[in-house]
Amino acid sequence: MSITDIATGPSAVDRFFQQLGAAPVILAVALIIYPLIVPGFFTFQIGGQILILGMIGLSLMVLAGYGGMVSLAQLTVAGIAGYGLAIFGINSVGIMGFGWPWWIAAPMAIALAATAAALIGLISVRTSGIYTIMITLAIATAFYYFVNQNYTLFNGFSGYRGIQPPTLFGLYWRDPLPFYYLCLASAALAYGLVLYGARSSFGLALQATRDNPRRMRAIGYNVTAIKVFAYFLAGLIAGTAGVLYVWFNGRISPGTISVAESIGILVIAVIGGLRHPIGPFLGAAVYVLMKTFAIDLIGAERFNTLIGLVFLAIVFISPDGILGLWQRLKPHLAPTSLRPHHEGRD
């Protein structure tokens, strides 16, 4: 059952650097020079969106992969941060908008989202498996309908418009290049923290709780607290992504956090793969590229069918998503000399 690897023993740090190898460095360089070789549309609309949705997917991966808790409310958490930003900061709708500067509004919005995530965790940790999915789906649905019909706080169907990222160091952070690097930095930070966190004592405790909560309780761990804290940490990631998403769209409305979009996050996590934090970003890349370009491949009539078929094909061929696909192909592709000596480790 344990699909995520648990680093053990004193050699963890050594192994970490050993494993790091050349690939992540190349990946990092590729991501950094990416906006310099593609036009603005690919930097902002594609790149930015992949990184943001990847981060929300990552927050789901943390809960589902390490904690065994599939939460459909991660986009809701991001949405809470987004609405928080619209309410604390400046918007052009003329409702709420306290006008706080971004360096107060954004952290407050993220803190609010993480707190809300912890509350959602508190409600749902007593359930497991399909019941967790159900209860978080219920929360996501309820929040969607609430913001849709509440006008004093959330401005109903129209939501908030005119939410701008700041101009800082002479840069307008919604221009493609700065925004891409902002997203990349946030995503890299979140990714690094998740990688590190998975090997920390808390991360190990969370994975142990996933595998055998009863035994963990017996040896003196507060299982509920561990799970709720995991929700809180995932909420920080989702909240950060939520702030970026609102800056990306310049607006937020119930449509942004609808149930269909929430399921989109699950699709991203599943087609990417839940066994490693890179999975959701791969999933988001496929998701965003398909959503954007399927209409060019097959025309306006049936493009959603194509999107569905591709997702279906990925999950059908590899139940572990794109990551699993890679795992499967790797031994066949590799020349013998390059084959890894240890089995089952990534």
Binding site: G21, A22, A23, I26, L27, W326, A334, P340, D346
Partner: peptide, 13 residues
């Protein structure tokens, strides 16, 4: 792990 290089090449292409 080293094999990821290949994937990256493909990705860049």
């Amino acid at each position: 792990m080293k094999l990821h290089r290949r994937a990256l090449l493909a990705l860049t292409l």
